[in-house]
Design a protein around this nucleic acid. Structure first.
Length: 335
DNA sequence: GGTCCCC
DNA sequence: GGGGACCAACGCCTC
DNA sequence: GAGGCG
């Protein structure tokens, strides 16, 4: 059973707050709470006359933390003002955990032929010269009902992390960022990740390149480097390789680009530059990870990239409390 | 988690 | 209506 | 082509 939840004195949705903190989907949160308090099954009414059937909302997805499928859906609705922008027009790759994080999981690209009305499916040219394939695609920014339905449908299927392509339909061959994934050896720990992140940041700054950082939600940091329009995956891959190799060459005690676990020097941080390719995905900002405590990929500032930063402190619960400032932060980092 | 098929 | 079988990725690297 | 890796 889910953990005991505070009973609300009223089922009335909270009035939206003003400014950046406005909560345009408070009513959807309230609907999810009502359905979960009932038998866990129901029909969500979303903006633009879109509806979505949801089931099993009381099912524990993070059993050690009392976090249910309904809690996961509500979290995504609460960060939707930024998350929907981040995934708009991007093909989605599902990783489904139908029994929660302690059960089996599997990947899914093809959404099948029977997706509900209101959920966005597009024919996407996955590989140049190959026939287009059906893919779930993050809803367009000007259709919040479709965008929300598509996101929540993936969760309805048991998806936990929101994994998206680096490019968007309409310019599917052009990633809008390059990514470096900093992943510490167990001996390196997060202090090592922070040190290497600063080195990467400096290497980029020397080239007058901006970057944005977020916790991966796991043990590392994702660094995103916005690219000019029209950049290719080759452009992204070669930039990422150049930066990663430079840092690893200059600081072999701290950083490595060696992919083999056996060959990787202990105590180093793996600077993974190989994810810049068509069809590869990254956990979006505010994606929840299928890990204990429901950790969240959370924007961080350079002032915060210090040894006091503890990535495991960013969870569904803590990020919900700070969401207004965190959403504002990501908007200022990525425009 | 969803779908299809068969009892 | 219930139960059971079956389905659900991929790119890039090194060897 | 297989296996490792993410």
């Amino acid at each position: 059973m889910p953990a005991k939840r505070r009973t609300q004195s009223s089922s009335r949705p909270r009035p939206p707050r003003r400014g950046a903190g406005a909560d345009p989907f408070a009513d959807v949160v309230a609907q999810l709470e009502a359905i979960e308090r009932g038998d866990g099954e129901g029909e969500l009414r979303l903006p633009g006359d879109v509806t979505l059937r949801v089931t099993s909302l009381a099912k524990p997805y993070f059993p050690g933390d009392g976090i249910t499928k309904g809690d996961l859906m509500r979290f995504y609705v609460r960060v939707a003002p930024v998350l929907l922008d981040a995934i708009a027009d991007r093909p989605l790759v599902l990783r489904r955990y139908p029994g929660g994080i302690d059960g089996p999981s599997f990947h899914q690209h093809d959404p099948g032929d029977n997706t509900p009305d209101g959920v966005r499916v597009e024919e996407v040219v996955v590989q140049r010269g190959e026939p287009a394939e059906r893919r779930l695609v993050g809803g367009p920014v000007d259709e919040p009902g479709v965008a929300l339905a598509t996101l929540l449908y993936t969760v309805q299927l048991g998806t936990i992390p929101v994994n998206v392509w680096h490019s968007r339909v309409g310019s599917i061959a052009s990633p809008d960022y390059a990514v470096l994934d900093l992943d510490p050896d167990p001996k390196a720990g997060f202090a090592g990740v922070i040190a290497v992140a600063r080195l990467v940041h400096d290497a980029l700054a020397r080239r007058h390149l901006a970057s944005a950082a977020k916790t991966s939600g796991s043990r590392g940091i994702h660094m995103l480097i916005p690219l000019p329009g029209g950049s290719s995956f080759d452009d992204a891959a070669s930039l990422a390789e150049e930066i990663a190799s430079e840092v690893a060459t200059e600081h072999p005690e701290m950083a490595t680009v060696e992919r083999s676990l056996d060959e990787r020097r202990r105590g180093t941080v793996y600077v993974d530059h190989l994810q810049n390719a068509a069809g590869k995905t990254l956990a979006a900002v505010f994606s929840v990870r299928a890990r204990p405590h429901a950790t969240v990929s959370t924007p961080i500032t350079w002032r915060q990239v210090t040894t006091t930063l503890q990535p495991e402190r960013y969870t569904i619960r803590t990020v919900t409390r700070q969401r207004d400032s965190l959403m504002t932060r990501w908007r200022s980092l990525m425009g």
